[in-house]
């Protein structure tokens, strides 16, 4: 995949999933402790979220770092907005800011 196509692919994933996590491994078998922490936090909020395993796609693994000019993975996006990596998500979880960010995404029933 050309670099431009990779950026389009990433943008599409972020458009298609209101909560989108780029991670190592998948939600059942995270392959990195930092990714695993974010998956556990998202699961606890009982909201739907998409994941993409960057270990299976080198172009996306490098492309996502350029997409938000952020050098590490995992990366969490909510409604197109870059939220942060594991450290930031964990801190926002503690302060309640993450729950606020996710409130519009939570199923109403």
């Amino acid at each position: 995949m050309a670099a431009d196509d990779t950026q389009k692919f990433i943008a599409q994933l972020i458009r298609d999933n209101r909560v989108m996590l780029f991670m190592k491994g998948n939600r059942l078998f995270p392959q990195c402790g930092f990714s695993s922490v974010v998956v556990d936090i998202l699961k606890s909020h009982k909201i739907p979220f998409g994941t993409f395993n960057v270990l299976q796609d080198m172009a996306v693994r490098e492309g996502i770092k350029q997409y938000s000019e952020w050098p590490t993975i995992p990366q969490l996006y909510v409604d197109g907005e870059f939220i942060g990596g594991c450290d930031i998500v964990r801190e926002m979880e503690q302060t309640g800011e993450l729950a606020e960010k996710l409130a519009p995404v939570r199923p109403s029933s």
Binding site: P30, C32, F34, D87, R90
Partner: peptide, 28 residues
């Protein structure tokens, strides 16, 4: 891999310098 805890000195004092541990590696 770079984990960052970046606080102002005020927050640092409030939390008495206690920062969260890093998660275990899962082989990635």
């Amino acid at each position: 891999a770079l984990s960052i805890v970046a606080w102002t000195p005020d927050i640092w004092r409030q939390r008495r310098g206690a920062f969260p541990p890093s998660p275990k590696c899962l082989g990635g």
